[in-house]
């Protein structure tokens, strides 16, 4: 039985609740125990480019909390994953900073050693649960649906620290998509930025990046995008809706969280997977389920 400290971060409880619902529903069927630690807060990602020390403290606190429970961390978000891994890397290479952080965390009865490992949901599925076990649970696999997998930058790069997948030609999400019976299409913009980090900084440029990706994925024949990061999902779901209203895109390419896709193929109902909570309607993906 696998057991993880379940780190949701900010965006999922506030804006992408269907991600949590669907992840819980699917992981329960694989006997993965998710431990909720109430004291978890934001990983600090939004501060990485304005106030690095505060970001480090936030991430260190999360890592220390998991360490206290003797658990590894499971994240659903590429940016939480990247931030926690990056913080662990910085602290492992700077003893002075680590002491400083520990002097501070000590006042909260926490201590950071660096024992808790950070795992992303996709790695858990691909490496730890494994293709064979997933295949066993499939009840209603897809047929004839084409999915463009979108990896998300912050899990892949910087690759020497992230150790997630090959940063030039990653395969993990393609493999997982194919497992559900869907066809994963190749598209040239697969590894480009979704635009989310520029939202709020320069909305116009952010939307241009998104529009370029949507058009490219559509041209590759995809019926849906599949993502595994709440920031990317917001960009392809909420922001795409807004872009449609402003006439910035005609791609009409909805995004489905990978875990929702897998859940459907396992026969879990769309409602339990939070499908209706997506902004762009994806409920008709059920029509692609093999009869």
């Amino acid at each position: 039985m696998m057991k993880y400290a379940f780190f949701l971060g900010c965006n999922i409880p506030a804006r992408v609740q269907q991600y949590e619902r669907s992840a819980r529903a699917v992981l329960a069927r694989f006997q993965v125990e998710l431990v909720d630690i109430r004291a978890f807060n934001c990983c600090g990602y939004p501060l990485r480019n304005s106030d690095r020390n505060t970001y480090l403290l936030f991430s260190a606190k999360a890592l220390a909390l998991a360490e206290r429970e003797d658990l590894d961390i499971l994240t659903l978000c590429q940016c939480c994953y990247g931030s926690l891994k990056m913080a662990a890397h910085i602290l492992a290479n700077n003893a002075e900073l680590k002491n400083e952080v520990n002097a501070f965390l000590g006042k909260k009865n926490l201590h950071y050693q660096g024992k808790a490992r950070v795992t992303h949901l996709l790695t858990l599925l691909h490496r730890d649960i494994g293709e064979a076990a997933i295949r066993e649970k499939l009840k209603t696999p897809f047929a004839n649906v084409k999915i463009a997998p979108h990896y998300g930058c912050h899990a892949l790069r910087p690759s020497d620290i992230m150790q997630f997948d090959d940063p030039v030609s990653p395969a993990i999400l393609d493999t997982l998509v194919s497992l559900t019976g869907a066809k994963s299409v190749d598209w040239s913009q697969k590894l480009e930025c979704c635009g989310a980090p520029l939202m709020g900084v320069n909305d116009d440029l952010s939307m241009r990046l998104t529009a370029k990706k949507l058009a490219n994925a559509k041209a590759s024949g995809a019926d849906y995008l599949s993502v595994a990061c709440p920031w990317c999902h917001i960009q392809f779901d909420d922001v795409q809706k807004e872009m449609e209203e402003e006439g910035r895109t005609e791609a009409d390419l909805p995004s489905i969280l990978y875990i929702q896709l897998l859940g459907l193929a396992m026969g879990i109902s769309g409602r339990r997977l939070g499908l209706p909570q997506n902004k762009k309607d994806i409920c008709d993906i059920n029509t692609f389920i093999a009869q």
Binding site: R157, P158, L191, E192, C193, G195, P197, L209
Partner: peptide
């Protein structure tokens, strides 16, 4: 910079 880390890679 949207921090995609392509240049770093």
């Amino acid at each position: 910079c949207s921090t995609c880390y392509s240049c770093t890679l």
